[in-house]
């Protein structure tokens, strides 16, 4: 029983580490232009690093039938876009000051971060 309990607690520790504590590597975008695929419940890449003070062009390609993936929101930038299925949607963002800008679907199940440095 002790072993099972330890396994259970380790499992909980892994969940906490994997989903909350681990900081995955951002995809660094050289020319502030990147294509993001929306497929199978995620944005890929979801963590994007861009340079500050330069306009950013994000090209979303939605290849996911789930209606949740249709709406793309950048709440702090007051941007909302409808992503058309099997088509690209370009989002032009003006030059931003350094910081982290979240983007997600209406329900926050699809989630990404634009890290501006």
């Amino acid at each position: 029983m002790i072993v099972i309990n330890i396994i259970g607690l380790v499992l909980i520790a892994i969940i906490v580490w994997w989903f909350w504590l681990y900081k995955p590597q951002e995809t660094v975008v050289e020319n502030n232009e990147i294509m993001i695929e929306v497929k199978d419940g995620i944005y890929s890449p979801a963590l994007i690093q861009v340079a500050a003070d330069r306009p950013i062009l994000l090209t979303f390609f939605r290849n996911d039938q789930n209606p949740c993936s249709e709406t793309l929101l950048f709440p702090s930038l007051e941007i909302s876009e409808q992503l058309k299925l099997n088509e690209i949607t370009q989002v032009n963002i003006k030059a931003l000051i350094p910081g982290e800008y979240e983007f997600h679907c209406q329900m926050k199940m699809y989630h990404g971060v634009l890290k501006v440095i």
Binding site: W18, F19, P24, D40, G41, I42, S44, A46, M109
Partner: peptide
């Protein structure tokens, strides 16, 4: 779609309904 979505989210360090 549930399993593929779940696996992809997991790899992405996120979790959802899938």
């Amino acid at each position: 779609h549930f399993y593929v979505g779940a696996w992809k989210s997991f790899k992405n360090h996120s979790a959802n309904m899938d």
